[in-house]
Computed example of a mutant assay.
Amino acid sequence: MIDLQTIPADARLYLRPEAFVDTPVGRDGTVARLAGGLLWFAAYELIAIVGTARVAQASVPVAALPAVIANLAAPQAERLRTLAARISAPRAPIVLPGRTIRLDQPQVMGILNRTPDSFSDGGANADDTAAAQAGFDMAAAGAAIIDVGGESTRPGAATVWEGDEIARVRPVIERLAASGTAISIDTRKAGVMEAALAAGAGIVNDVAALAWDDRAVAVCVAAGCPVVLMHTPDPAAGPHARPSYADVLVEVYDWLEARVAAVVAAGVDRTKILVDPGIGFAKSLADNLALLNGMAMFHGLGCGIVLGASRKRLIGALSNEAPVDERLGGSVALALHGADRGAQILRVHDVAETVQALRVWRGLKDAGLTSRRD
């Protein structure tokens, strides 16, 4: 590592919020707000990358960042000013017909799979009426969004024909939309996106970040809908083509940064983009843990963050190979970890339990915000 005063002029710079505090009261000028939400932090981790190597890494107090910026080359100084502004800027709400979902606190996205082979609940919602009722139940339990999918993304899953996928998701979306439920469609296919949006879905959630189907971006631009871009290193190869990472946090950040820029250039409003680091997709256990621990860095993209870690394999790996149906505790722990790092959307199977945990979490944050410091 080198001194921050001698960062190479060609280094790429990153900021990760750290040193979170329970209240900003009495800390004027020494803390910054995270994404306009309920969290405040007192320092940034500044990371400098040359090639694939971290050549500098140090904690910089919030109040000291302007002095650090003053000593940098002009492009790097502008980069850090942009990152700091994006990290603190409030996230635009998700605006859907008849419903607005605020992103100044964590929201729950309930998972509704219409697939016979999903890793967790394959076949559980095979009947249209029962599937719709499962969606209603999740909404009643506190889910702000119901994420409907008709193709499994588990390792080794076969690609589903577009017509079959539409047949799986459209009847359920129509029933849920008729009740005013906010719906996202979990798909890579432009035709499925079109059919789902026409049936009443309002958000596109794509594990391939609109890069698997050549028409996907155009469909979303035409619809003007919010989109979730998930990291997958090679969309054409599918979500589980395993690469090797020199620095998984930085590489996933760079990939998402480039993908956001491409989608914005194609015509999607940046305020309508959310990002997902893709926990469990083309990552090892160590990769997943590094992303979870470093997740606050993704706020530098200036987009809402979606975290989907519910019932994932990493929970079993950390808990004596617990099977999928015994991962509730780990799922809630990861959801709360995401909330503590500012994730705006938590995509989960177990809605009622996660919502209850977040209500307690919110109570703790509210108490901190109203506390007095003499």
Rank of each mutant, 00 (worst) to 15 (best):
D234T: 12
L285R: 08
V306S: 05
K272Q: 10
A195N: 00
L256A: 02
V260F: 03
D247G: 06
V264F: 03
H299F: 13
D269F: 03
A262E: 15
A241R: 13
G202M: 11
A199K: 07
H231L: 11
G294R: 04
L274D: 03
M295C: 13
G280I: 06
V306M: 12
S244D: 14
C225G: 06
H299R: 13
V264H: 01
G300E: 01
L229N: 14
R270G: 02
A236M: 15
V263T: 10
G238P: 14
V263Q: 05
V306N: 01
A286L: 13
W255Q: 07
D206F: 06
V221G: 08
A196I: 09
G238C: 06
V204I: 03
G238Q: 08
A262W: 10
W212S: 00
W212L: 04
V252H: 12
T271D: 05
L292T: 08
W212Q: 00
L291Y: 01
A246E: 11
I305H: 07
D214G: 01
V260G: 09
A241H: 13
H231W: 05
A246F: 00
A199Y: 02
G278F: 11
G202A: 03
N288F: 09
L274A: 07
I273N: 07
C303D: 04
A199W: 05
A209P: 11
G202K: 07
P235Y: 15
N293G: 10
A237T: 08
G304V: 15
A236N: 14
A236V: 04
L197W: 00
D269Q: 09
T271C: 07
S244N: 15
A265P: 07
S310A: 14
A265N: 06
P233G: 11
A218C: 08
A262D: 11
V204W: 06
L307W: 14
V264R: 05
V221E: 08
A296W: 09
A198M: 02
A241F: 02
A222E: 13
C303P: 05
D234Y: 08
V268K: 05
I203N: 03
D247Q: 13
G267P: 13
S310G: 13
C303H: 07
I305E: 09
M230Q: 06
Y253T: 01
L274I: 04
W255C: 05
A290K: 07
